[in-house]
């Protein structure tokens, strides 16, 4: 509770405005009406990437629907494979005016050790969507279906980074299908697409948003989807679970706060995020726009999901020899 009185420089203006409107209201009463300060959404990555677009869309929907009495500011803190941003968020322990998005590095960088935080150091608030992965090949490839993978030899699949969803999924694929597909890490999704188009990679995993344009242009052929349900835009593409393979991994679009924030703040944000997730604005500006799967998770379910996700990454990193 003490932290609620702390006025940061950024919110000083908002604080003054509040004082101007209600100069006679006692301080305690004001503290009860959370949020009384501007909210900072920390993006642990640069401008223009997936997590940045998510943050800015959330902020816009909240503003359009007037879900917050204060302003939401998006702040990019890139660097250190997410470590800089999440360290920064973690340093605001107990301060409910900071929140941040959950990316892959949120789990994997602390697993490499030496961090002052891990996923347990944050308070889960909720999840707004999830994004499946589609396994695709170059449309000129001999591989027409998932079964062709078993007979093909020496296949290469791309991944964005060494420790990433694409690598995790490929290891699951090898385990489930008994294939020997080798993972070649690249630095960005675009590089991977280029390498598949140029025939330097045989397979890749991509979010629907990345892949649909390539599929529509006839450059790539989708094989299967890493979620229980098919994708609306690609109704003919089967899912791994329906083909009998236990490959079910999606990217969660989730939001967390630093540790030690008051329970009222968590309840407040569960409400806000639920309204966002169920709004038409969100459907239009995010779900339909980027072809993601609608979803709302509250704090408790997100906590469970985060635990499961982290242990999936941990298992993969142990197999890769990155962890003992």
């Amino acid at each position: 509770m003490v932290n609620e009185f702390k006025i940061s420089r950024r919110s000083f203006g908002a604080g003054l405005a509040a004082l101007g409107i209600a100069p006679l209201v006692p301080r305690l009463a004001r503290a009860a009406t959370y949020p009384d300060k501007n909210i900072t959404y920390v993006v642990a990555a640069g401008v223009g990437g997936g997590s940045d677009i998510l943050a800015r869309t959330v902020a816009r929907v909240i503003e359009d629907k007037k879900l917050l009495p204060v302003t939401m500011i998006v702040e990019n803190r890139p660097g250190g494979s997410g470590a800089i941003g999440y360290n920064y968020l973690n340093s605001h322990e107990g301060d409910a005016s900071y929140l941040g998005g959950v990316g892959v590095s949120f789990f994997t960088t602390p697993l490499l050790g030496k961090m002052r935080y891990n996923y347990k150091s944050f308070t889960p608030l909720g999840a707004l969507a999830r994004s499946p992965y589609i396994l695709v090949v170059n449309s000129g490839s001999d591989i027409k279906s998932l079964d062709d993978l078993k007979s093909a030899s020496s296949l290469r699949v791309g991944s964005v980074g060494a420790v990433a969803d694409e690598a995790l999924l490929s290891h699951l694929l090898n385990k489930e299908m008994g294939t020997q597909i080798r993972v070649v890490p690249y630095d960005g999704g675009g590089e991977v697409i280029g390498a598949v188009l140029g025939g330097h990679l045989d397979l890749m995993w991509g979010n629907p948003n990345e892949m649909l344009e390539q599929v529509r242009a006839g450059k790539m052929r989708p094989l299967a989807v890493s979620a229980p349900e098919r994708i609306k835009e690609l109704p003919e593409v089967p899912t791994f679970p329906e083909l009998g393979y236990d490959i079910n991994h999606t990217q969660l679009r989730a939001i967390v706060m630093p540790a030690g924030v008051p329970a009222e703040a968590v309840a407040y944000w569960e409400g806000v995020l639920k309204s966002v997730a169920e709004s038409d604005e969100w459907r239009e500006a995010y779900l339909d726009r980027f072809n993601e799967i609608p979803l709302y998770l509250d704090s408790a379910s997100l906590a469970k999901e985060m635990e499961a996700t982290s242990s999936r990454y941990e298992a993969m990193m142990k197999e890769l020899g990155l962890l003992k």
């Binding site: 660097g79 250190g80 494979s81 470590a83 960088t109 030496k114 961090m115 060494a162 990155l322």
Partner: peptide
């Protein structure tokens, strides 16, 4: 870039990138 372990990081995340 290929296996993901930190190299010459002087024990600090500042040099991860």
């Amino acid at each position: 870039p290929i296996v993901g372990i930190p190299r010459f990081d002087l024990g600090s995340a500042h040099l991860f990138d």
